[in-house]
Design a protein around this nucleic acid. Structure first.
Lengths: 338, 338
DNA sequence: TTGAAAGCGCTAACAG
DNA sequence: CTGTTAGCGCTTTCAA
């Protein structure tokens, strides 16, 4: 093992010279397709040994330039601050590698400009496929990709121009709402109506969840007041403020809440603690999202967990099937036994 | 905007032909260094317009192959399942981009094999610098990088061969322990001794935190029993089981605990809830880590938050200064006012 | 069983 | 002010 700092990296030409052979032989051996070329195993071993000794590392840029396929797969993701996106990224990397692909991921902080900047960069890196997770403007990304002849997919939030894999937000929200209502009756003796809080009314998922929320109410003959739907955004402070505003209007005597994400739940819980509803069963909560600490919060908060493994399974199925029509695949979320 | 699916991507030669000029002019214009070449702004604008129309995207592989520097910076990170690593990744991407670097990040699940596999791949992609975050075997990575003439840095967990930026675990743990002891006295009327739980005894951070834990006890003339140091690993189940075992030995009458991470805290809290210490102030906790839900758990859990912005600032300072000696830079963690 | 050579798309001298 | 040219390191025919 030599530790000489080399100004220039070792190339296959260096190895060829050391082995007394040619660059093409070295290339073939190092790529493992040397039986096809019927290179003597003697030469092959010699080359491998020398490569090892020299600490040779392939120059992927050169390799990729010459090759037709890059085997790079890209993903853009909005945030790393919750378990949902964290598990998407972790599992995506795993599954991509298992398929011989090289995953590159970038976080765009829900910033539309950054999203398309990131997409452009990924295209420069010759991604073969780009997955836009929770993108604010997925169709713009799809258009960019299409122009470069690259396929794209939407995950979590759907787009109109590419295949989309999303949770079944309507069914999940309806069932979650139903459970919160049941818990209300059991614990408070009265059935709702509930408050909906968190998320953006403009995003598809939130709209679908509100629809499910309404459906569950009307299933039981309950009416939902317009002012009890608070799609105030995702940030904790926004949820906290929305509840303060509601309380100021003297209208905070709801028995239960449907919270649209753990991030919003953070704000809700801060408000709850502040306003003295702590742990006394007087507030019945449900959250369309999952985090291990939530079940330890002590309010028996019902959770809906999006089925990340199944969603990613579908993602790779779509990629491998070659489908690029704008279908929407809905994956049922997981709801623990009641 | 043409939406024709092109089998072949547009190159600078295509653009040059369309603009009636040469590839080098196109290259210069697209790279922004055309005033150096004193290309007429007329030509420049024409080229840019055509590039736009054609949806041209640079082939980074070709560009990088020719250029001397890749401007790619790599990071490996153990997990995405907690706020600490999540914020490291998010901020790292930001800071890298702000410096004109392209960040590539990969998650290695605390798997030593995956770590070096990932490092090797990043080297193939010509990273100029590799940051090993919380690596189980940082020195092996440093050696690989050194052999390829690439600089490397350790973050969160130190190594012996490259600069390391880590939290001041000793001081942080000592202060956290002191606070837990004060809380014990205030809430329970007795001062410790405490239990230490979570982490691996073999990792530097855990060892330093145990040292700080011990120091805070001896500052107050308290002794720490060997069997009250439970470096049982990070997984929640391991913490839960360790506490069960301790309780079985009839030795669970500790007044307070120092929990080594939010991941371990998850297991601790499950055990607490199960064993009936819920919310009754009979258990005083502190956690060397931060998560917004922890402050909502209701046990007044003291937290130490690692100073991610400051740590990453140091990382880039070291990179930019060109230092590659194995120094260890310790960043004080943040502890909220008492 | 092996080597020579072309060329992937781009950049940077250098020569006008 | 602009074009020609020589590679970057690798893969892959093709010829021997």
């Amino acid at each position: 093992m030599n530790h000489v700092k080399q100004a220039k990296r070792t190339t296959i030409y260096d190895l060829a010279e050391l082995a007394g052979t040619s660059a093409s032989a070295v290339s073939a051996v190092l790529n493992g397709n040397w039986k096809k070329r019927r290179i003597s195993s003697q030469l092959a071993e010699k080359i491998m040994k020398i490569a090892e000794e020299q600490g040779y590392a392939l120059n992927m840029q050169a390799s990729l330039l010459r090759r037709e396929k890059s085997h790079i797969i890209g993903m853009i993701v909005p945030k790393y601050d919750n378990r949902y996106f964290g598990s998407i990224v972790e599992l995506f990397e795993d599954m991509a590698r298992a398929r011989g692909l090289f995953p590159i991921i970038t976080c765009t902080r829900r910033d539309p400009e950054l999203e398309i900047e990131a997409a452009r960069t990924m295209l420069s890196y010759q991604v073969e496929c780009l997955i836009a997770t929770g993108a604010t403007d997925p169709d713009r990304i799809t258009e960019m990709c299409a122009a470069a002849g690259v396929r794209s997919l939407n995950l979590d939030l759907p787009g109109a121009l590419a295949p989309s894999i999303i949770s079944d937000n309507f069914a999940g929200a309806r069932e979650l709402t139903r459970r919160i209502l049941v818990n209300c009756e059991r614990r408070l003796g009265k059935k709702g109506p509930l408050l909906f809080i968190g998320g953006r009314g403009s995003d598809h998922n939130t709209a679908e969840r509100i629809r499910g929320f309404r459906a569950a109410h009307s299933d039981l003959g309950l009416a939902v007041a317009e002012e009890h739907i608070l799609a105030c955004g995702y940030a904790p402070e926004k949820a906290e403020k929305a509840l303060d505003d509601l309380a100021l209007k003297g209208d905070a005597n709801v028995g239960g809440m449907f919270v649209n994400s753990t991030i919003s739940l953070e704000g809700v819980m801060r408000w709850v603690r502040r306003s003295g509803h702590l742990n006394d069963d007087s507030l019945v909560l449900g959250c369309f999202d999952w985090d291990p600490f939530v079940s330890l919060l002590g309010n028996e908060i019902e959770m809906v967990r999006q089925d990340v493994p199944e969603m990613l399974k579908k993602v790779f199925e779509v990629i491998e099937s070659g489908v690029s029509k704008p279908v929407v695949i809905q994956v049922p979320p997981l709801i623990p036994q009641m």
